[in-house]
């Protein structure tokens, strides 16, 4: 357990400062299906960004630019909510593609 913090260094009550867990826990490995964004169909309504429970829809300049595959768990909420079928859920194969 080298590199891990000792008990005196931990925040009171295990409170986690915003954005810090992102670096420690790459939960994208849990994904069975991967969302694929089809830019040509996207109307930038941001419904996918609004509904993503893992904040994994990447936004740049107020527009969707893709997914954070290190944290997306493949729940498919974005594909379900998309009014233009611009997001496709594709099975990860043999665990290979589960890595970002």
């Amino acid at each position: 357990m080298a590199g891990l913090k000792g008990w005196r260094e931990l925040p009171l009550g295990g409170v986690v400062t915003g954005g810090t867990a992102k670096e420690l826990q790459k939960t994208g490995g849990w994904r069975a299906e991967r969302p694929i964004w089809h830019e040509e169909k996207c109307i930038q309504c941001l419904q996918c960004w609004l509904h993503c429970p893992d904040d994994s829809v990447l936004i740049k300049g107020g527009k969707v630019v893709g997914f954070d595959y290190e944290h997306c768990k493949g729940c498919g909420v974005c594909a379900a909510i998309c009014p233009k079928d611009a997001i496709e859920m594709v099975p990860e194969r043999g665990g290979e593609c589960a890595r970002p």
Binding site: L4, W7, G13, V16, T17, G18, A21
Partner: peptide, 21 residues
């Protein structure tokens, strides 16, 4: 302005230290 998460999950690598604290 300072977002935090209360009540996060702790794996075997940190649970023990948090209980010690």
């Amino acid at each position: 302005d300072h977002p935090v998460t209360w009540g996060p999950f702790a794996m075997p690598d940190y649970y023990f230290e948090l209980k010690r604290a």
